[in-house]
Design a protein around this nucleic acid. Structure first.
Length: 316
DNA sequence: CATGCGCACGGAAGGAAAAC
DNA sequence: GTTTTCCTTCCGTGCGCATG
């Protein structure tokens, strides 16, 4: 196959728009002779006159008119490859983002994220996919099954980039009528009530159980589930208690639905949320916009609910 | 034998001037 | 206004030669 000088397409695009060699030359910062020479190369490449002289004007040939739209589209698309986010036209594109996230983020901020993204990019579609203990999130990011991960820190592969989004403490959560609210809460009372435990791993006893064991106490876990939000209805209907992240309590209209939070009678380790992505997307304008929007959303949420601590300093 | 350097050559492209 | 001719410049390539 003969080598084609693709720059000829750029010149042809300008020539077809200007309809004049001299005007095209001005636009391309060339001398008229240079533009004329370019036109002659275009003529050879397309085996067509492209323009014929009609008096003092140049008239495009039928072949030239036939090429015009296609050439313009190809040049515009090729030019787009060189663009950075300053040229990202969010109002026109229809991106689909696949986000692997646990229900903590999806339930608290999923809808708010969609709203924020759509405000700038009406064509956007968000696709959330879950992850379980068998998933290798690093692999999923590497192999493009997901564009972004949002959730608790995981043992990521070294190339994966991460950024902290929020830190949330825990409070107890139960229905208003639960007997736990009838008297001041002590550690001893805390362990008397049936509990729901969240666990995505095989083991369902953690730091809290170790702390209790050190004091000779054991809590009664009667239900082990993998996600927080699925338990809202259960909490409303049964006398059960559950350790719930502040981020859920703050964003849920819990008083209206008959639920009530209580301070834990012991210190609990906070939970950090982060976003993680593959380095291939580091400089990608669209991906950076997504990450920035997620980040801003979490910052805004922090300002609205001071109970949630600030994310770390921006690392990009 | 691989590598680096200098040189000459040829093609591509642009400018000036003149012709069409 | 457009094209052609002539000239110059730039750059990539190939070759010969020297060096390690």
């Amino acid at each position: 196959m003969h080598h084609r000088d693709l720059n000829l397409l750029v010149a042809l695009d300008v020539l077809l728009e200007e309809g004049s060699v001299a005007a095209a030359a001005r636009r391309m910062n060339l001398s008229p002779p240079a533009m004329s020479r370019t036109l002659s190369r275009i003529r050879v490449a397309f085996d067509d006159q492209i323009f014929v002289q009609a008096g003092r004007r140049m008239t495009p040939t039928p072949r030239a008119l036939e090429l015009q739209q296609q050439v313009h589209a190809v040049v515009a698309q090729a030019t787009g490859l060189f663009r950075n986010d300053a040229h990202l036209d969010l109002s026109r594109i229809r991106p689909v983002f696949t986000i692997q996230a646990d229900d903590l983020f999806l339930g608290t901020l999923g809808a708010a994220l969609l709203e924020r993204l759509r405000a700038e990019c009406p064509g956007v579609t968000l696709r959330f996919i879950s992850h379980d203990r068998h998933d290798d999130v690093s692999l999923s990011l590497r192999e493009r099954h997901a564009d972004l991960f949002i959730g608790a820190p995981l043992p990521f592969k070294p190339e994966i980039r991460t950024q902290s989004l929020f830190t949330t403490g825990f409070r107890g959560f139960a229905r208003k009528a639960h007997p736990i609210f009838r008297q001041p809460l002590t550690l001893e009372r805390f362990v008397q009530f049936d509990q729901i435990s969240i666990s995505r791993q095989d083991r369902y006893s953690g730091a809290i159980d170790e702390m209790l064991a050190a004091r000779g106490l054991t809590r009664r876990i009667v239900l082990i589930v993998p996600t927080f939000f699925t338990m809202i209805e259960t909490l409303r209907s049964y006398d059960l208690i559950m350790l719930m992240p502040d981020i859920v309590i703050e964003t849920l209209p819990h008083r209206e639905i008959g639920l009530r939070a209580f301070e834990l009678p012991f210190p609990s380790a906070p939970l950090t949320g982060l976003q993680a992505w593959h380095p291939r997307n580091d400089k990608d304008a669209l991906h950076r916009w997504l990450r920035r929007t997620v980040r801003e959303l979490c910052l805004q949420m922090k300002n609205k609910h001071p109970a949630l601590s600030a994310p770390d300093a921006l690392n990009e």
